[in-house]
Write a protein that binds this DNA or RNA. Sequence first.
DNA 1: CGTGTAAGGAATTCTGACACG
DNA 2: CGTGTAAGGAATTCTGACACG
Lengths: 147, 147
Amino acid sequence: MIHEDAAKLFKKIPMEQIVLGIGDVAKATGVSQSQIRYWERKGYIESQVVEDGKNRKFSYKTLLKVQQIKMHMDDGYTLVAAVKLAQRRGAFLDALRSFFEERFVHIELVDDDIQINMGVFDPDPTKDLVAERIAGKWEFKLVAHEK
Amino acid sequence: MIHEDAAKLFKKIPMEQIVLGIGDVAKATGVSQSQIRYWERKGYIESQVVEDGKNRKFSYKTLLKVQQIKMHMDDGYTLVAAVKLAQRRGAFLDALRSFFEERFVHIELVDDDIQINMGVFDPDPTKDLVAERIAGKWEFKLVAHEK
DNA sequence: CGTGTAAGGAATTCTGACACG
DNA sequence: CGTGTAAGGAATTCTGACACG
């Protein structure tokens, strides 16, 4: 039986610390290196310059942005329009992340089954909301506070 | 107002497609390149060989594993023991991922507020469970099915 | 066992220029 | 505006060996 503070878990899932080279971003997103360099020059995305060398590195977050821009361009938008749309997406992901950090209070793993304690269930604050996976299916249930 | 099928969103957040070079893995995890090459040689982690070239590339998932192994070693475990512990963690993350994919049915963003529809609330199957962020705080509520 | 280092070759990325449009 | 390409130099990664233990 393993249990974890979810806060710890998310700190272990790096978002900011992950940086990758232009080739890897190009491969992951399907956007060419020329495009990436151009977008950066125009200020649509940013890269971190490696201390000693002069190679670019891109954060995971930037990779997601590149991906968003490409998606909108595939939908027929111009580059400028696609950039604007992608801007809003950042808020989206940040919001999701805040949900995980705030509401995944405690995670417990028992064999193949797993439980996520999401803290106080607001419609009935005497209970905690728990998501439970049993035999591959996720179900919600309410439990009394443990302490 | 933006709304999204969560399924789409998660497909856009690549896990498998992201591969990165050994230097980037080393930087992100704090594990040296020598260590990474050795661990790979022993079969503890795996890398994908680039088609034409002969450079290694590591998936995001492998990066997480490297990070886990290091963490356990920092706790005092031997390499072999740390690898065994890290093994179990994979199931952990896969489980979390399945929760997102199965239960984040629909996501809606209104200005700065965001709603996540998590589908049927099992204790009362006539309702859907919704997580809502208002003014920076997440709350749960129940709503009747929309259709 | 587990990691580091020096060594020379191979693969990747760099910039600035030029092309097309 | 937005992207591609050829060019030479710079930075990164490769393998196999050897060291320490």
